[in-house]
């Protein structure tokens, strides 16, 4: 994934262009030994989430923090900024306008990062599958680790999804960030296909 000296960040004004980094993401290989296993264990038990409250999913995410569902007992805590969080939750249908924000937030998170997509809308468009503005499957634009089906999934289902994600991380399969870096051009091509006014940086560090 070399840059090849192509002009980048053309969507930005000349003044803004120098504010953003031009480097592309690189694959960070996981260590192949017991240390990585230990680190994965820590990652799996300290999931800091960035809730992206599009659609109706956000309303099902809130009860998780309350005494009734108490997600913090599994080490799942909400975090207000993409920089610090490790799990990105897309809370329902995404339109073209929100996809821009999703991509930017996702790229600002640090490797390793995981994505959970809630609801049928993120899987195949759900009840908005033929809408002019609702994207049908989110995994064409960013790598998704876990889909939680439902319209909307109940908090119990979301907790079960977190359990699955935990198993995935423990098995060392939560490498979405590397997948994104590996297939960067494919993902970018898909994003550019629907985001027609590309007025954001090509890659957000």
């Amino acid at each position: 994934m070399e840059n090849n000296n192509k002009p980048v960040n053309l969507g930005l004004s000349a003044a803004d262009r120098e504010l953003f980094c031009e480097a592309l993401p690189v694959v960070r290989k996981p260590l192949q030994n017991f240390i990585e296993k230990f680190l994965n264990w820590a990652r799996a038990n300290s999931l800091w989430i960035l809730g992206f409250g599009t659609g109706c999913g956000a309303i099902e995410l809130r009860p998780l923090m309350t005494s009734r569902y108490d997600m913090y007992r599994y080490g799942i805590a909400p975090r207000p900024t993409p920089r610090q969080s490790s799990v990105f939750i897309i809370g329902g249908y995404a339109s073209v306008k929100t996809l821009k924000r999703i991509v930017r937030s996702y790229e600002q998170m640090q490797n390793p990062k995981f994505v959970i997509a809630l609801g049928s809308c993120t899987i195949n468009g759900g009840m908005y599958w033929d809408s002019y503005n609702t994207i049908n499957r989110i995994d064409a634009y960013i790598p998704v680790d876990i889909y939680i089906a439902g319209c909307m999934p109940r908090p119990e289902a979301i907790i079960a999804g977190f359990g699955k994600l935990k198993e995935l991380i423990l098995a060392g399969k939560g490498e979405g960030a590397n997948k994104y870096a590996d297939n960067f051009e494919w993902y970018k091509a898909n994003q550019r296909k629907i985001i027609k006014d590309w007025n954001m940086p090509d890659y957000n560090w």
């Binding site: 195949n124 468009g125 033929d130 809408s131 994207i135 049908n136």
Partner: peptide, 22 residues
């Protein structure tokens, strides 16, 4: 898109990536 001669289903199928099996 809200004009009635706009075919939203065709647009969606053309633009987004429909998943098989619906």
């Amino acid at each position: 898109p809200m004009r009635r001669d706009f075919d939203t289903k065709a647009y969606s199928e053309k633009t987004f990536f429909p998943r098989e099996g619906r």
